[in-house]
Design a protein around this nucleic acid. Structure first.
Lengths: 209, 209, 209, 209
DNA sequence: CATGAATGAGCATTCATTCAT
DNA sequence: CATGAATGAATGCTCATTCAT
């Protein structure tokens, strides 16, 4: 009986999670298309096919939905960090970096809407989630920093401000999201990855002259 | 008498322009701090010390204020383009580029709020102004493209996708605006300019190996 | 369960209709008393005892309320047309016309506010409803035209411009609404009906001299 | 000197009157086209080419302009009454009535916008002017009453409710203004006058059977 | 659990009128 | 006299959130 109750509870929690996810996804589409402020709770309710009242059973506020949306997307990038971080260091710094850049830009391509959203809606993101996002950003940067650092140590790279370089890499990848209006008309993703990799590696390489 | 009337008219137009500018500036501060959507006409009226009614004497709508704000800022960047473009080509490509980057980042530093605003509020910017902004953006990019192109011609640079490289420079400058949260805590402006210049030049330089 | 849901739905729709009707009636009173433009949504909300927000659950706009009001009233006149049209032709033209006039003026008496409203607010009535009203007006006129026509055929009436005559009848009935300020002080409804009937019949009758 | 002052004063008064007339005419056009409530003081100022401030030198309020407009138009109808009243009684009642109807409808044709305006905007007309208008209306009705009365006295007409008959004539003339949407597409003015005259005379004539 | 009706503050904008210049 | 800038209450309408059913 006790066990059953727990199971029920778990099941209930599962259903809750499913619903929350559904709401979040519906909201995500609207947030991305129309912006956070221009999306109304009614829009979300209509799009998700859930009544306003029910919606408030699963989420506590509009900002809460935004938080969920961010949490949901954070996972992807966290995965990126966790999966790759260990792998990358086994190769040569240049190879590592090339793989890192490629993986990152591929992720950016997948999450382009979300990344654009972050750039645009930073103001409306609840502070705790914003700092969480910045943290992820920094972790990614750190990943690149580590590789660059390793490259510097073995003389392949020559960089004065490693962190700045890492940020540069980050930004040169994010570009794929926020300059989409230009890039998609002039590049393929692969071309973009190739050229950015070259540009970055050349920017870091030592012993050039 | 006729002359007087004209003078009066000119004076009046001047006063109008002054007021409009005042309103625009007040609004700009609010737009930047709170975002366009979250800024109300009442806010603007209060901040500018002008009654709502009077405000509508000088501007036609909230979107109109935004347009004024953008026009006002566009001038700065237009100046950047017009003043520099002729000057830059007299030097060597590398020198030109270094000067161009420095000037651009300096401009970004001055207009950081506005640039951030563009990145964030693109959605709410009236289409005509948005296309105007993109045009400026492309002109700036073109400026860099020309320099890179010249550098390639004389063998100093080796770049496959010149336009992409130009966009990279653009973005690596804009960074100073949209990664301010990180950069201002780790860099001075001068350090940033120096390192970005180095990074970019190295990224473009040929004959490295 | 399905059935229950349908019932619920129907019930809900019913409640909606009731509320809409309530709002419409409240608004009607205000529209008639103060005019459409001089009636504010706040007035309607206050008078109907419904909050502004709730009000917009049931109607989509102020113009929408006006449309509802017109639709609601149109029904009455449509009934007049549909019920009477078949009945009238069984009698002699003169009798038919007398009955038709009496019935019409009785309807005018009932709908006097509304008819006055139509005369006064034509400008503000949404185009689709206005054309709907004109259509009803023309149908009524047609009713009279048909009777007059029949009367002419059998030699009882002698009328050159049948349609104009029908319009005359219409207008001589509507008078009861828009000359109320005079008529109610000098006539009873019955007197009015009697005299207008006589006036009209005499105006149409042939073989007089 | 005293004389001069008086002249000046008179002149000034004249100029005032001219301006007032100009404003009134401009306003009239707008009132008729857009309705009283939907016409703004700004519209009137713009249309008349007079500044808002100046406008308030000559008139005291928006309602005041409306009053002026009504006064201005009242004159026409007053002329109609005064000029015709004496003339009409010299002829036979039937002839008199025919002339009266023709003259009245001709006046209606000229003043159609104004008459329509009265029907529509009665609500917004200042009470004193409204009663003034009703007075004119009654005077016109009286004119017809007198003729009908004379016709009854000499046995040409047989009417029970003379005042109602007079109102009928009035309304059957006004029709030309407020059913313009229908009539102008099916009648010429002359046809309308002819047929209405016939209809009315037949409606009044005695000894028919 | 689910529903959607209810709330009322808030929004951008308009308006007749006043008044300093 | 003439101007038009200034006022701020009022307008139609939207919204996130609550709560009775």
């Amino acid at each position: 009986m006790n066990e059953k109750r727990i199971l029920t509870k778990t099941k209930r929690a599962d259903v809750h999670d499913k619903k929350r996810q559904h709401i979040t996804k519906s909201a995500a589409g609207l947030f991305i298309k129309k912006g956070y402020t221009n999306t109304s709770i009614r829009d979300i309710a209509r799009t998700s096919g859930i009544s306003i009242g029910a919606l408030y059973h699963y989420v506590d506020s509009k900002a809460g939905i935004l938080s969920l949306f961010i949490d949901w997307q954070s996972m992807y990038l966290n995965d990126f960090i966790n999966n790759k971080s260990s792998v990358l260091m086994r190769k040569s710094p240049e190879e590592s970096l090339a793989i890192g850049i490629k993986t990152y830009i591929t992720a950016v391509d997948e999450l382009r809407d979300v990344i654009l959203f972050w750039y645009q809606e930073a103001r409306n993101i609840p502070p705790d989630r914003l700092s969480c996002l910045l943290d992820i950003e920094l972790q990614i940067t750190q990943l690149f920093s580590d590789i660059i650092s390793a490259g510097c140590d073995c003389g392949k790279f020559k960089v004065r401000d490693i962190n700045l370089a890492a940020h540069n890499i980050n930004v040169l990848g994010d570009m794929w999201a926020f300059r989409r209006w230009y890039l998609t008309q002039h590049c393929t993703l692969n071309h973009f990855i190739r050229e950015q990799t070259r540009f970055i590696l050349d920017g870091l390489r030592s012993g050039k002259y």
